[in-house]
């Protein structure tokens, strides 16, 4: 038995927790409020791994077959 490394799996994109200032900047840039962003649960294995808390916004850098790389945000909910 070994512990597998979740973040290294090819299906899992890079998740980064944003700081309060970065979060404000993102919300302002899109002109939305937090709950209008796509959501992710606190119980999500990746969220547990990176230690994000409820109310945080995570930046997700996806590998996209159409754009090469695309950035999205998800709001951490309960």
């Amino acid at each position: 038995m070994k512990k597998f490394k979740l973040m290294e799996h090819e299906l899992v994109p890079l998740h980064i927790v944003l700081s309060e200032e970065e979060k404000e900047e993102v919300l302002k840039r899109f002109g939305v409020r937090e709950h209008q962003l796509p959501k992710i649960k606190v119980t999500d294995p990746v969220i547990k791994e990176i230690g994000a808390k409820k109310g945080d916004v995570v930046m997700i850098i996806r590998k996209s077959p159409t754009a090469g790389e695309s950035v999205t945000y998800r709001y951490v909910i309960e």
Partner: peptide, 21 residues
Amino acid sequence: DSRRTKTNNINEIAEILGIEA
């Protein structure tokens, strides 16, 4: 190889690798 191994059960992926996966 825990980087490439996958299943066709999408719910299982959501549970173990997360919603983005």
